[in-house]
Design a protein around this nucleic acid. Structure first.
Lengths: 136, 136
DNA sequence: TTACAAGTTAGAGTCAACTGGAAGTCAAGA
DNA sequence: TCTTGACTTCCAGTTGACTCTAACTTGTAA
């Protein structure tokens, strides 16, 4: 069980930010100690680390919330609950997941393109200035 | 030659945003018509489209400015100017380019990771609910 | 029991990145 | 000439994502 500052240290988010994420619903409310302090499970840490990655990819907190919320049903299924309980919404959830997958794929393609541009530039620089660089 | 609203239409940025980018230095000042209206070349459009891609990848406008500015020397070299004119700064520029390349690579790896997570989820959903979906 | 570190809430402040309004200019067609 | 529409500048307002302050509480060690 971890305090907010331990989670802060492990994830790189400040306690301010962690409380803010809770407030806007990106993180759900954790258990509390008798004194009222937030107490986190290890799983919260990996959740936040995953969240950080999505943030780095340029997703907004709203998109991240949508993306990670899809895990809720998954968690329940993995915990042994009957998937047919969720049947009415499952199809929609799969559609959302597929949308995200396509979105990620297209971002990956854009990254590949940017990498190829940057590599091209780099090679040209290096070839054009090989001697200059050796001399500096 | 294009007006600001034509550029807006082609790039998906509003005229407000285009002027804002000019103001903060992300875009350089375009030529003006006799009446003082901004006039853009086609190349500006592809520049902005490239800029949009970098923005989608989560780079800040400051990072984008830094990234794209590296093209300036390249452009001059390609236009036939002697690269040794730029010699003192070339090494540093290559270092910056390499830094960006590594940054892009690491973002790509994170995306691959997120894609694999999403794919995993999707497969599980579909397997667990194959019949339910057929019946809806 | 007191001092202090680390937590709490509510709410204000900050910063990047737009977004919009006001008031004015300019060119082309009726 | 007048109107219309698209532009101009200047500047204030908004949104998303934090970040901090103030005032207070709790737990622990001296």
């Amino acid at each position: 069980m971890l305090t907010i500052s331990q989670v802060s240290e492990k994830t790189g988010l400040t306690p301010y930010t962690i409380r803010y994420y809770e407030k806007i619903g990106v993180l759900h409310e954790p258990k509390r100690s008798n004194g009222g302090a937030r107490v986190y499970k290890e799983s919260e840490v990996s959740y936040i680390q995953c969240l950080n990655k999505l943030k780095k990819l340029g997703l907004s907190l709203e998109e991240i919330t949508e993306f990670t919320r899809e895990g809720c049903v998954m968690d329940k299924i993995q915990q042994g609950e009957n998937p047919s309980n969720y049947n009415p919404t499952l199809k929609k959830r799969i559609e959302i997941l597929e949308k995200h997958l396509m979105e990620l794929e297209s971002r990956r393609q854009e990254i590949e393109y940017m990498i190829s541009l940057a590599e091209e530039k780099l090679t040209l620089y290096q070839e054009l200035t090989k001697e200059d660089i050796v001399n500096t």
